[in-house]
Amino acid sequence: EERLRREAIAAWRGVWVFVEQTEGEPARVSWELMGAGAGLARSLGTELCALVIGENVEHLCHEAFAYGATRAYLLDQPVFRHYRTEAYLEACCSLIETYKPEIVLMGATGMGRDLAGAVATRVKTGLTADCTGLDVDDRRNLRQTRPAFGGNIMATIMCDRFRPQMATVRPHVMQMPGRREGATGEVVRETCAIREADILTKVLEIIRDKKGGVDIAGAEFIVSGGRGMMAKENFGLLQELADELGGVVGASRSAVDAGWMPHERQVGQTGKTVRPKIYIACGISGAIQHLVGMQDSDMVIAINRDKEAPIFQVATYGIVGDLFRVVPALTSQLRQLKQSTIR
């Protein structure tokens, strides 16, 4: 029985990345996953494939090649214009059952989590959520490492008896791979028997968030404030510092709950995961739920008057002091430096 199982498992080959898109616009996390998937495909000696589903989305296959895929499965039909679980679920499952990939990766976004949870249930396999580390062992099994219990622990999860092995990864957790202009690959055109009449769920309207615009998750420089900011008005200090760096202002949940900053700016377990070049935490204690959202930043700078604050444990550089004195000093130093370099 064990031998049969192993043979059945050996029939599954290839690493797939689901290319998420809304109205033809790809989600960046898909390309980050291409980077992670390429590493896995290399270790396994197998192919990296893109799974592209939508309407008028063929250009995304070529984008996928530029980010490392060598083959793209394309389902391009009007019924896939808007994401609806039923339609995408059918599409994914039929392709998975036909081509038997050993690994399927999706972004841990609203859409990715919605789809991955449904697909894994239908194909009766395991799904590991929000992975921060992916690698393979010597028996072609995927080692999936993820934070759990609010980031207090890390766990490595295996799904060695089932295929495909499925995982989601949050945006900005994996590094964006380089773009290879002109890279080519094979587009495998597929069709799906689903008709619009079969899908009773209708997307009536997509409302773009007007105040949007600021995407802290994509920023290279983030200046975040916590309860230590004391009041909404004081976030102006952080904005000034962020402006000098060409960055954006983020916040801890305490600052968001106090109504000082909108929820879109929240960093952490129940906010966004960020990975900027520099993350400056001002008046943030560094609770574990905050740390899981920013600890992979290239550099963390903490400004806090309590030298015991846990934020100093993840900070590359810490300044123990009053943020109301340190932050303005930092802003003016940067301003001076900028003026002298421009001159």
Binding site: K124, T125, G126, L127, T128, R143, P147, G151, N152, I153, M154, A155, T156, I157, M158, C159, R161, F162, L291, Q295, V300, A302, I303, R305, K307, F312, Q313, V314, A315, T316, Y317, G318, I319, V320, G321, D322, R325, V326
Partner: peptide
């Protein structure tokens, strides 16, 4: 359950450097 936890550990953290005397 197709998935199982093979290892559980504390997240590692590298302690940084405190600069100057901010006070």
């Amino acid at each position: 359950s197709p998935t199982w936890v093979s290892r559980i550990f504390s997240p590692e953290r590298a302690k940084g450097q405190v600069l100057g005397d901010g006070e």
